[in-house]
């Protein structure tokens, strides 16, 4: 493979970086909100609500991401495309776009993992913290939001940074449902030029760079919120 092809394919793959990043940030941010609801459900007193949340977490942590994407895209997507009234509605343009299936699949997946991380962190906060906030007259929700959660999130930061990296890597699976993010673009160029090693090195380097920035960012956050003991 000549140098010229390396340069053009580098630019072409770099153009796909925003797609990967938007996939990851969108699914992570919505997934985090979903995860908070899931944690609230899994800590609830009602057995049914707890069971629902736990089985959600169990399913999304116990099956490969690929199956979840397939079920959503080839399952739900196929079923939606069979419904005539949806095909005629204005939503069809959105429903027909594989990008949203990837975002939703990644979001559901990360919500399950994040919920488990957050639950572990909340349980790790000593009970005395909650008891002392009750004794100061705070309600359950006040103590949860003002006392427990801030401490739990600090506790969860290292595990969550792993989850973010897993999401960056997981976003490469979106290429299987024809989304042109980094891996998808790389695979397209590969099928056109039959080059492989150079393309994998370029794509791998970009992924490593993204993950390096993420690790640095989380290291910075961990240092910022570190407990300073005398």
């Amino acid at each position: 493979m000549e140098l010229e092809l390396i340069i053009t394919s580098t630019f072409e793959i770099l153009k796909a970086v925003p797609t990967t990043l938007s996939l990851v940030t969108l699914s992570l941010s919505i997934g985090f909100i979903l995860a908070i609801f899931l944690v609230a459900m899994s800590l609830s007193k009602s057995t049914i609500i707890r069971f629902l949340a736990n089985s959600y977490i169990y399913y999304f942590r116990g099956t490969p991401l690929l199956i979840q994407i397939y079920l959503l895209y080839f399952g739900v997507g196929y079923w939606l495309s069979m419904q005539d009234n949806i095909k005629q509605s204005i939503f069809w343009d959105i429903i027909n776009e594989p990008y949203w299936y990837a975002v939703i699949a990644l979001m559901f997946n990360t919500a399950g993992y994040t919920a488990e991380i957050l639950r572990g962190a909340i349980i790790s906060i000593p009970k005395g913290q909650a008891e002392s906030s009750y004794s100061l007259g705070l309600s359950y929700y006040q103590s949860m939001i003002k006392i427990i959660l801030p401490q739990a999130i600090r506790q969860a930061l290292p595990a969550y940074s792993n989850e973010v990296i897993l999401m960056v890597k997981g976003s490469s699976l979106a290429s299987i449902i024809t989304i042109m993010e980094i891996t998808g673009t790389m695979n397209k160029i590969r099928s056109e030029t039959y080059a492989i090693y150079e393309l994998i090195i370029i794509a791998g380097f970009i992924y490593l760079l993204i993950n390096f920035v993420i690790t640095r960012l989380f290291k910075y956050l961990e240092n910022k919120y570190k407990i300073v003991s005398n």
Binding site: I165, V168, K169, G170, S171, S172, L173, S175, T183, M186, N187, R190, I196, Y197, I200, A203, G204, Y207, L208, N211, F212
Partner: peptide, 21 residues
């Protein structure tokens, strides 16, 4: 660092399309 930092799919593609070469 590399194998934990790049997507699994890339490793599979590398071996599948490049391994035999």
């Amino acid at each position: 660092t590399v194998l934990r930092g790049i997507p699994e799919l890339l490793v599979i593609y590398l071996l599948f399309f490049g391994g035999e070469n």
